[in-house]
Design a protein around this nucleic acid. Structure first.
Lengths: 152, 152
DNA sequence: TTAATACCTCAAGTCTGCTTGAGGTCAAGG
DNA sequence: CCTTGACCTCAAGCAGACTTGAGGTATTAA
């Protein structure tokens, strides 16, 4: 259809990746993916971009923001599409983050068990509302679910 | 200070709940909490609102949206502040939701383990990008992390 | 050749959960 | 009485992740 040489147009990529064209535009604008232009200024993608989009989507499933994803991808030499090796590294890193989130949520769930028993929910003592007694320390309200958001 | 009869002003409540005044305004506007006005049109809260705010904050920690929280609270007779009994019910319900999320994330993490081994990430076969083979069925992309979002 | 698609850019809109600011009112202390 | 400080309302702004729309160009099938 719109396949020239070895690359695909944005529509085809969008279809195969299961995202909208506008999403691809957006990702490109955010520096998450890249393309080259043909003579008529239309985007041409190498098919490897599909894997890259896959990485992005997978990371999002893990609750990782585009910003963090970009940071991780930018660490790859040449900003290339992750190879299997790279992907393994990313996987491991993100797995840790995921582990953290799961741990936090599990704690929360177990606290809920306690609360189901006691019916408590005092602002000061409730283990859920005030998980690690953070409130008393930093007065920002405990932010337990984002265990890896120290930036900014 | 600004305590009349048995109620508190917005500033006091905000302080004790650890949220901003604007947040209370916002919650009220969204129908999550309520107040009465004194002769000078200033908000007066019953101290029970603190528990209600606690419930809201706790639920948010669990990743539940304000919309869902409101739905749950609205189910309570008289839209009253949850009693211990009510709270137990809500806790149980939300615990289920949380269980679901944890399960999903755990699956994801385990899939990551697999991927670490194989380095795969094909759009069609990757267990992470396409967890339950949803993509093929509904072409909307798998939305695995929000296991209780069937509305709309 | 021509009509139908497919693409392009840039601006603005959407949704969530709040925050900030402007301009004005109310309450309490000296 | 008068000055703070606590409140009020309404409008607008912000961040994140996109989507939608308008107006215009390219490509392609017939």
């Amino acid at each position: 259809m719109m396949k020239t040489d070895n690359s695909w147009g944005v529509g085809k990529i969008a279809e195969r990746a299961g995202v909208k064209i506008s999403t691809l535009h957006y990702y490109e604008q955010q520096g998450l993916i890249s393309s080259v232009r043909n003579s008529g200024n239309q985007r041409r993608y190498k098919k490897e971009v599909l894997r890259r989009i896959g990485v992005i989507k997978a990371a999002q499933q893990l609750g990782i923001s585009l910003k963090e994803i970009k940071q991780a991808l930018d660490l790859l030499p040449n900003k290339r599409t992750p190879t299997q090796e790279d992907w393994k590294k990313l996987s491991k890193q993100w797995k840790k983050s995921l582990d953290g989130r799961i741990t936090a949520m599990t704690k929360l769930r177990d606290s809920l068990d306690g609360c189901i028993g006691c019916g408590c929910l005092s602002m000061k003592n409730c283990p859920i509302y005030n998980p690690e007694d953070k409130l008393g320390k930093n007065k920002k309200g405990a932010v337990i679910l984002s265990s890896s958001n120290d930036n900014e």
